[in-house]
Structure formats: C-alpha cells, structure tokens
Simulated scan of single mutants.
Amino acid sequence: MIQPIKLPFYAKISCILISLISFAYIFCIAKDIITPVLMAFLFAVLLLPVFTFLKTKFKFPRHLAAISCVLIFAACIVGILVFISYEVTDMANDFDTIKKNANTFITDIHKFIKDNFHVSIGEQKKYLDNVTKDSVQNGKATIGSAIVSISDLLLDCTIIPIYTFLFLLYKDHFILFLAKLIDKENHGILKDILSQIKVSINNYIVSLIIEMIVVSVLTSLGLWIIGVKYFILLGLITGILNVIPYIGILIAGIITVLASLTGSAETSIILGILIVNIIVQLIDNNLIVPLIINSKVEINAFVSIIGIIIGGASAGISGMFLAIPLLAISKIIFDRIESLEAWGYVMGNHMPKRFTWRIRKVKAEN
C-alpha cells in the first residue's frame, strides 16, 4: 500500500495557491468553452428530477426522457421571451410619446441645474456635446464588441441545450467515471458528495426562481400603485435581472425609468419608481435572501461577494451567476475531505459554539 506523502504546512499552502492560480488561469483562457458546460451542468441537475420521473413513471427511454426535459425547459424560457417581446412591441408603439416626454424631462433637468448650480443651458449642452464626441470616437469598438457578444449569446443558446441533453443522457456514465478515479473504500464519500451537490444546486436554483417570482410580484404591485404603464412587464424584467448580482437591479431601474416616460415626464413618477425599487431591494436583501437563499446555500457573505467579483471579472454576467453554485460545490467537497476541511469551514456562515462559550465564560469570570 502506498503511504501518503506528508508535507509541511508551508508546502501545502504553496501547492494550494499554485493549484488555485492554475485553475483560475485555465478558466480565464477557456471561459468561452467552460462557461456553457457549467451552465448546462446546473440546468441538467435542475432537470434531473423530471428526467427520473419520466424514465421511471412513464417508462421513457433515456434519449426520449432527456429530449423531453430539454424541450420542457426551452418551452418555459421561450414562453417568457415571447411574453416580453410582445409587451416590448406594444411599448414600441409609444416611442413618440417616450421621445416627447424624455425631451421634457431633460429640459426640466437643465432648468434645475441652471437654477440651483448656476450653470447655463448653453454650457450644459456644450459639455454634453464634448462627451458625445468622445463616445462617437469609441463607437465602432463598442458596436464591434456588442456584435461579438450577441453572436456569443446566440451560440450559447444553441449549445447549452445540447450540453444539457448530453449531461442527462450520460449521467450514469459520468458517475462511473468518477468512481473509477478513486479507491473503492472512498465510494461512500463520493456518493455522499454527489447527493449533496444535487440537493444544494436544486435548492439554490429553485430558491432563485422563488426570489425572482417574489421580486417580480412586489415590483409589479408597487409600479401599479404609483401608476406606471406596463407594470407587469417591468416587474418581470426586474425579477429576471435581479438574478444578476449588483448590476441587475441598476439596469432594471434604468429600463423602468425609461418605460415610465410612456405615460408622463413627471418627476414624482420617477421618484416613485426609485422608492419602489429601494423598498423591494430592502425586502429582498433582508427577508427573501436570508430566508430562502442563504438557508439553502451555507456560504458566508464575505466569500460570496469575493466569489461574485472574481466570477464577474473572469466571465462577466455568466461568471457572476455561476459563482455561488461553484462555491457551494467546493464547500461540499471540502467538508468531506479531511485535508481540506478547514477551507470548507472558512466558507461557512455559522459561528463556532466553542468560541461563543469561551466568550461567555470570560464575561462570567469578569
């Protein structure tokens, strides 16, 4: 039997850092390949109960069950997109009204700046013209980047369903591959890790869907109360974009403000929209996320924020979306491997009971 090599602490830390840097470098240079695979893996895990149900209850063959799962998932996504496109088309009919109200709103802002900051309208327009010229100079590069982004999105929309189908189809094949990689005495740990990963990802994605629905309903209700047109569409867009950490709600707020110009250019409506977004975010951050999201994924806020920032820097919005599930998977693996248990502990969000007891003991002695 081969004895494990015992390394000193500094050597272990060095190996861990080198491994992390290597993984990060590989992910950055191959993100266009790895990101769709990881997205498909998450969707496959989400659809796994449906796949098992079709295969056991209705006796579907594996191929038919996998195709049915992908088609059901695609139908849900297409249904949402069709509804949004229909509402956006209806909103486009009010383009002249939006343009008129936008001009009125901009004029009011110019007057407000002139009255309170003593900057003439001519100077303001001159400054805006200079900014516009600088933007036009970089316009070709921006358009080129946008075209590349759209083409990448279309490619991902095509290849992610294919990857999802293959993950479902070869599920047992991949599990057997993992079993062949490790010793038989560790198969129990592998089974526990895979089952926990399945539960964790399912809970996280279902929690995100619940959060999206609740935010959409609350935002739609708030916009309806203040009299914003297309409140259902704007609430749905806010709920969907809220899945993107930090920047999603800002984009949703800008879209909502622009859409509110279909009705009027009153400042009170825009202030009402800002108040509705702030209230919904307070409810989301202080009630929905702690009760629904954090209770399903035991990752502390510090590690979550760092992971989201790193994910966004390396793979954009997709990286931000994948950050929490990947951290959850990493924690599950770390918690079940003795040499990595400390790293799983530092990612958790629970206070140590022994440390709390020591604090109380010191207080009692004083």
Rank of each mutant, 00 (worst) to 15 (best):
I182P: 05
I77L: 11
L287E: 00
I244L: 13
T262V: 15
Y345P: 00
G248Y: 06
G312W: 03
N242K: 08
I67L: 15
T35W: 05
V280I: 08
L48S: 12
I278C: 12
A75S: 12
I147H: 12
C76Q: 11
I159L: 10
I317T: 07
Y163K: 03
S85H: 02
K133V: 06
E298P: 02
I143F: 11
I109L: 07
E365K: 15
I121M: 13
I310V: 10
Y86D: 00
F112V: 04
A75K: 03
S314W: 02
L42E: 05
G144N: 15
G316M: 02
L282T: 10
K331A: 01
Y127A: 12
F53T: 12
S220H: 05
I193S: 04
N93H: 09
V228Y: 12
S145M: 13
I143R: 05
P4G: 11
N203A: 05
D90Q: 04
R354G: 01
L81M: 05
L250S: 08
I225C: 11
I18D: 05
V362L: 13
S68V: 12
V148Q: 11
T158N: 03
L282V: 04
N93I: 11
I279D: 03
E185N: 07
Y25R: 09
F334N: 04
I269C: 02
I225K: 14
L234P: 15
L71Q: 06
D183V: 02
I5K: 12
V148S: 14
Q196I: 01
L190G: 06
D108I: 00
K114H: 06
M351R: 01
T104N: 13
L71I: 14
L47H: 04
I240E: 05
D115R: 00
G311T: 05
K114E: 09
I2G: 00
L236D: 03
A40I: 07
I213H: 07
P8D: 14
T56G: 01
A315F: 03
I270N: 04
A265L: 07
A66H: 10
Y246H: 06
A44P: 05
F23R: 10
K198P: 00
I324Q: 05
S304R: 03
K100P: 01
K198I: 04
N101Y: 04
P4Q: 10
G222V: 04
L274W: 08
T158V: 09
T132M: 14
M347R: 12
Q124L: 13
S195P: 06
I147D: 14
P61A: 01
T267L: 15
F41G: 01
F165T: 05
H350P: 11
L168P: 04
I240R: 04
A328V: 01
D32L: 11
P4F: 08
I147N: 14
T158D: 03
A30I: 13
L155K: 15
V136S: 13
A265Y: 15
I193T: 00
L194D: 03
N366V: 14
K111A: 04
K140F: 14
I210R: 01
I113W: 10
L291H: 05
I255E: 06
L258P: 00
N366I: 14
C76I: 15
I275Y: 07
L166G: 04
I2W: 09
K296A: 06
N286W: 06
I226F: 08
Y204K: 03
P325C: 12
I98F: 08
G144T: 13
N366Y: 12
D172K: 13
